[in-house]
Amino acid sequence: MRKCIGIILLIIIAWGILTSLQTMPFGVSRAKVANHYINNGKDETGAANIVTSVVINYRAFDTLGEVTVLFLSAIGLGAVLATIKTREKRDTEKASLILSTGCRFLFPPIILFGAYIFIHGHLTPGGGFQGGAIIASAFLLMYLGCHGEKRLNDRCSTFSESLGGLAFVIIGLIGLAVGTHYFLNNFMPLGKFNTLLSAGVIPIIYIAIGFKVGAELSKIIDLLMEES
């Protein structure tokens, strides 16, 4: 019964989409806005990666919202799980020495790689979100490999997520206060193109986002795995 209704509904949707897709053929250039970003993005924002300049400069407000969504999710998850009183106990085997040493050995390079990704966000593919996810994967590795020994430091993660978010907002407010009075304005000098210290506020915001996203994703995993 439900299947029939579902199939009928989907056929209607598919018909609608088919009529719509005919006006937008695949692989043809069309956007005026996108052309502006590609042609002037280099000069206006100083970032070699145009996607980064769109994410952090032209559409920075979306990114602020996105960071907030992730923050909300971590908070909401904590609020939902906080009402569980009894914690389950599971019999788990302690990891062998080789495994745990290997994990500990791998931990710093992964963190370093994540940091590399978000610091170079304006030059190469990648950025705060991808780098943050990689950092979170390092913490995940510690959870899996070194059983129950290393736990996320609560205070530390709170600090980095709060300060990361605050840094984003404060940079925005500085942009409002100095220069041309626009929120999230790129008020710093753009520097030499295609070098690490260029593109004004973009690297700073990406570092803040990297810290925040890393802390939040680790926290989500930590809250979900919590058992002992």
Binding site: G41, V55, R59, D62, V69, S73
Partner: peptide
């Protein structure tokens, strides 16, 4: 580049919704 920026946002939002939904599954 614009759809790429949008999708970057959408992926992160998707993760946020999924993890909230799964925490509710545990509850």
């Amino acid at each position: 580049p614009v759809p790429q920026a949008l999708v970057l946002t959408a992926i992160v939002i998707g993760l946020a919704v999924l993890s909230l939904a799964l925490s509710m599954a545990i509850r």
